[in-house]
Amino acid sequence: MTNPFVVPGGVLGGHGPLRPWEIAEQDDYYAPVDNTQCSFEEFKTALGGGASLAAKGRTVLVSGGGGCGKTSLMHRCAHWLKQSGGPKATIFDLTEDGLDGADTPSRIRHVCGRLVDELELDGSLDEVPLTGLQERRDDPSKAFPYLSKIFQKSQRAAVVLLPPSEVFEEVARYAELARKNILLLAETSYPTVADTCRARLGPGTASQVLVLEVGMLHPGDGWRLVADRYARAGAELPEISEDTMLTFMEKRIAGTRGTTIHELQMVLQEVFEEAAGKERLDYADFADYYLRKARLL
Score class of each variant (00 low, 15 high):
residue 8 P to W: 06
residue 8 P to H: 04
residue 9 G to A: 05
residue 12 L to S: 13
residue 13 G to Y: 08
residue 14 G to S: 12
residue 15 H to T: 11
residue 17 P to L: 10
residue 18 L to N: 01
residue 18 L to V: 05
residue 21 W to P: 01
residue 21 W to Q: 07
residue 23 I to Q: 11
residue 26 Q to A: 06
residue 27 D to H: 12
residue 29 Y to C: 11
residue 33 V to R: 01
residue 33 V to N: 03
residue 34 D to R: 13
residue 34 D to F: 11
residue 35 N to G: 13
residue 36 T to K: 11
residue 37 Q to A: 14
residue 37 Q to L: 13
residue 38 C to N: 15
residue 39 S to A: 15
residue 46 A to N: 05
residue 46 A to W: 07
residue 46 A to D: 05
residue 47 L to W: 02
residue 49 G to Y: 04
residue 49 G to L: 05
residue 50 G to E: 03
residue 50 G to F: 01
residue 50 G to D: 02
residue 51 A to Q: 15
residue 52 S to A: 14
residue 52 S to F: 10
residue 53 L to S: 03
residue 54 A to K: 04
residue 55 A to C: 10
residue 56 K to V: 08
residue 58 R to W: 08
residue 58 R to D: 07
residue 59 T to P: 00
residue 60 V to R: 01
residue 60 V to H: 00
residue 63 S to C: 14
residue 63 S to T: 12
residue 64 G to E: 00
residue 67 G to R: 06
residue 67 G to Y: 04
residue 68 C to Y: 06
residue 68 C to L: 07
residue 71 T to N: 06
residue 75 H to Y: 12
residue 75 H to C: 12
residue 75 H to T: 07
residue 76 R to K: 11
residue 77 C to V: 04
residue 77 C to E: 04
residue 77 C to K: 01
residue 80 W to T: 05
residue 81 L to P: 01
residue 83 Q to M: 09
residue 84 S to L: 05
residue 87 P to R: 00
residue 88 K to A: 15
residue 89 A to P: 00
residue 89 A to S: 05
residue 90 T to Y: 13
residue 91 I to Y: 01
residue 91 I to G: 01
residue 93 D to M: 03
residue 93 D to F: 00
residue 94 L to E: 09
residue 97 D to A: 15
